[in-house]
Simulated assay, not measured.
Amino acid sequence: MNNSTRTRLVAAVAAVGIGALALTACNTGDTVTNKPKAKASANKTGGKKPSAKKTATPDVAEVGDTIALKGMEDGSKLDVTLVKVVDPAKPGNEFMTPESGKRYVGVQFKLVNTGTATYGDSPGNGAQITDTDGQQFESTFADITAGPSMSSDVKLKPGAKALGWIVFEVPKGSKLATAQFTMDSGMADQTGEWKLS
């Protein structure tokens, strides 16, 4: 076996090994979490019935709740709050309107960088909503009258926050079920999910 053949053989074996390692690394087990963070100020209603009811049904994040998420890089963490939903949402101008038979839905997210690394992303790329039939809808580029859109180029140092609307275009007859948010333009392993209905 000459040196060039040996070099090619070593390179081929290395490529196969790296490919197998990459396949293993890609299959890290994505997770969807709908467990909200505990609220800082809990309302006390008195009596034991509310606490008994709370333990009987698991907490599922809804509008107004915050979910702690991790990104792909060390120190990349966000507290993501689904603040409000406007359905249907009114277009911000007459030039950008939903297609015939569709409507805009606005979802307002608040992002707080709770990590040690700077967060930089286009949050709309990692957001989607699902209807009760299981159809999933990604964000669309549109402004609505409910308020300012989420920036497409968010950069947050640790402790900083961003607030804005992400808009979706869905069929008029669709009934919303959930909203999801994933860091790193949807590439992170952990996804937050909020119940909408």
Rank of each mutant, 00 (worst) to 15 (best):
S122W: 06
A160F: 03
K161H: 07
A117G: 06
T81R: 08
G71Q: 10
G147L: 10
S152R: 09
P50C: 04
T81L: 07
G134S: 11
G71E: 03
W165A: 11
P58H: 05
T81Q: 12
T114M: 07
S174G: 05
G92A: 04
E62D: 05
L163P: 01
G126D: 02
S185Q: 03
K84E: 15
G164F: 08
L156N: 03
A61F: 06
I129D: 03
G75L: 06
M183F: 07
K175E: 15
K172L: 00
A127S: 15
G173F: 02
T132V: 14
P148S: 15
T191A: 06
G192M: 00
T114K: 10
K110M: 14
P171M: 12
Q136G: 11
G192F: 04
K84L: 10
T191V: 04
D74C: 01
S185A: 12
D121F: 04
P91F: 05
T55Q: 12
A127E: 02
D121L: 05
S151W: 01
G126C: 07
L69C: 00
M96Q: 13
L82S: 13
F95I: 09
E73F: 06
S100I: 05
P148D: 15
G173V: 04
T132R: 09
L78V: 05
K77S: 04
V112C: 08
L69Y: 01
A61Q: 13
S152K: 09
L111D: 07
L156A: 03
T57Y: 00
P91D: 10
T57M: 08
D121A: 10
V80M: 10
T66V: 11
G126K: 09
S76D: 14
G75Q: 10
I67R: 03
T140K: 08
I129G: 06
P50D: 03
L69W: 08
W165M: 13
I166D: 12
P58A: 15
P91M: 12
N113T: 09
G192D: 06
G186S: 06
A56H: 02
T66G: 04
G126I: 09
E73I: 01
F109G: 10
Y104H: 12
G134N: 12
A162S: 14
S76M: 04
G115K: 06
F168R: 08
D153T: 02
D121M: 07
S122N: 14
G101T: 10
L82R: 01
S139N: 15
E62Q: 13
T140C: 08
Y104Q: 00
V85Q: 09
A56R: 10
